[in-house]
């Protein structure tokens, strides 16, 4: 018969081994924050994710970026990993307003607070807070400027973003809430460019073949505006067709200054990302009363005021 002390030592060793394998909420003595972003294949989202990560690091956390590659399955896997990895909070840019809710609920059930950035989820009882660009108001301003520059008559095309994303429709509805009031302005084509530059180029090329005489193109983000501009350049129509974007990307600001693109809506990805990291920090220090939705203003950028903007914000 083995002495009972050996049995106790074995149990202790197993317990210690199990503890070593259990994920820790701390890395090198620092608590961990996850930044889960819809895609790192678009410079705007890279800025959003980097800003969130950098602010979390400034606040004393160990922060890691998880790329969902615009795929809800990858996003779900990211959440599984970060929950298992013992992360203390998530700064989250969702891929789908409805499809991402389950991931947020899973994190909440595991005691991990989630702070949505830029894109919302269609639930107010899952995330701790959501910091969202006021896309609708931004596109009301863009719509008003569109009418001012294009005039009250003419034809135009619209390049939509991802059709499952609320931002796509908030932008489109804000724009149309103004432009549709002018019956002389007719939309001759509307198609998704999936918020992607290459897709925007491709869609614009086919739209130009069907409608060579359009006066303007309203694009749901700056990546598609760049693609549309590229298609217009190739067709020898740059300058004839007025292009409008949304985001405030640096390459579009340069084109606005040069006269290639008419206007964009400046979102403030750095402001949103930093505020989300600060919310997470406050949560981890005990604060619990957060507003569920915090709208972040979008500002109209035109050739008249473009000098005031740059580096994804106001200079």
């Amino acid at each position: 018969m083995k002495p009972p002390l050996n049995k106790f030592a074995a149990i202790l060793a197993l317990t210690l081994a199990a503890l070593c394998l259990t994920p820790s909420a701390w890395a090198d003595g620092k608590q961990k924050i996850a930044v889960v972003v819809s895609t790192m294949n678009n410079p705007w989202f890279v800025v959003l994710a980097d800003s969130a990560r950098d602010r979390a690091i400034e606040l004393g956390y160990d922060a890691t970026i998880f790329d969902s590659q615009n795929d809800t399955a990858k996003e779900a896997a990211n959440f599984e990993n970060l929950i298992a990895g013992g992360y203390g909070a998530v700064l989250f840019n969702p891929t789908d307003a409805n499809g991402s809710i389950a991931n947020v609920r899973k994190a909440k059930a595991a005691g991990v607070p989630v702070f949505c950035i830029d894109r919302e989820i269609n639930a107010t009882d899952a995330a701790t807070a959501q910091l969202l660009s006021d896309n609708y108001a931004g596109c009301v301003k863009l719509g008003q400027y569109f009418v001012k520059t294009v005039g009250q008559t003419g034809t135009y095309v619209e390049l939509l973003g991802l059709v499952g994303d609320n931002n796509t429709w908030n932008r489109s509805k804000g724009f149309h809430s103004v432009v549709d009031r002018f019956p002389g302005l007719k939309m001759v084509a509307q198609q998704s460019g999936e918020f992607d530059r290459a897709k925007g180029l491709e869609v614009m090329e086919s739209m130009l073949q069907a409608h060579p005489d359009i006066n303007a193109a309203f694009c749901g983000n700056d990546a598609m505006a760049m693609g549309a501009y590229q298609a217009l350049l190739a067709a020898g129509k740059a300058g004839q067709v007025k292009v409008f974007g949304f985001d405030g990307a640096d390459d579009v600001l340069k084109l606005i200054a040069a006269g290639g693109i008419e206007a964009t809506g400046m979102q403030f990805p750095k402001t949103m990302a930093r505020q989300a990291a600060e919310f997470a920090d406050a949560y981890l220090k005990g604060k619990r009363d957060f507003p569920q939705k915090v709208p972040v203003e979008v500002q109209l950028v035109t050739r008249d005021n473009v000098a005031k903007y740059g580096d994804f914000g106001k200079k």
Binding site: A97, E120, N122, A123, T124, L132, N135, Y136, N166, W169, N170, K173, G174, P291, Q292, K293, P295
Partner: peptide, 12 residues
């Protein structure tokens, strides 16, 4: 806005 789960409704 926090009372509306979908911002499209709030904007409408």
């Amino acid at each position: 806005p926090s009372d509306f789960s979908n911002s499209q409704n709030f904007n409408d």
